[in-house]
Simulated scan of single mutants.
Amino acid sequence: MTFVTKLSFESGDRRVLEETVDDLHRTIERKGVECKGPHAFSPERTRVQLYKQLRPGDQFSPWEYTVYARKLEIHGADDIAREMVGREFPDSVHVEVEVDRKKPLGHGRE
C-alpha cells in the first residue's frame, strides 16, 4: 500500500512562500523521492471590515491582503515525508498536511 502525503502551503508573503516550497521540493528530489508539484494557485484577495467599536457603525477603511497558495505531493517514502513535515517552517507560512492511502492497481475492494 502506498501513501501520498499532500502538503498545502499558504502565506501573505509570496517570496517567503516560494523560497520555502522550492527548498522543500529540491530536498525531496535530491533524496530521490517522487514528488508532484509545486502547484501554484491564483492569489486570493481578502478584505476585512474594521470597526471602531465592538458594535456595527463607525468603520475604519477595510484591511486588504493577498494570500498565496502552493501544493506538493510526496508519493511513497513515508520516512522522507515524515522528515519533511517535521521541519520548522517560517511563522508567515501556514502548512496543512493530508495523508492518503493508495491501493495498487488491480487490488480489489475490501
Rank of each mutant, 00 (worst) to 15 (best):
F9V: 08
R30D: 11
V48A: 14
E44I: 15
T20C: 01
V21N: 01
I28F: 02
E73L: 05
E64C: 09
T2A: 11
K103D: 15
V16N: 06
L7C: 03
D79H: 01
M84C: 00
V95Y: 00
G108T: 09
Y68I: 13
E34L: 13
Q53R: 14
F60L: 14
K31G: 08
S61M: 15
V95T: 02
S92I: 08
D100T: 08
H107A: 08
L54F: 05
T2H: 08
K31M: 09
P104R: 13
R70E: 12
P43M: 05
Q59M: 07
P90E: 06
R87L: 07
K71W: 05
R109H: 04
P56N: 03
R70L: 12
A81V: 06
K6Q: 15
P43C: 05
K71T: 06
P38D: 13
A69S: 12
Y68F: 14
I80Q: 01
P43N: 04
H25E: 13
Y68W: 06
R87Q: 11
E64T: 08
L54K: 04
G37Q: 05
I74W: 04
L50T: 08
G108W: 01
T66L: 11
T20E: 07
R15G: 09
S8L: 09
R30E: 15
A69L: 06
Q59V: 08
A77V: 00
F60A: 15
F3S: 15
G108I: 09
D22Y: 05
K52Y: 07
A40R: 13
L7A: 02
E10D: 11
V48Q: 14
I80G: 02
L24K: 05
Y65R: 10
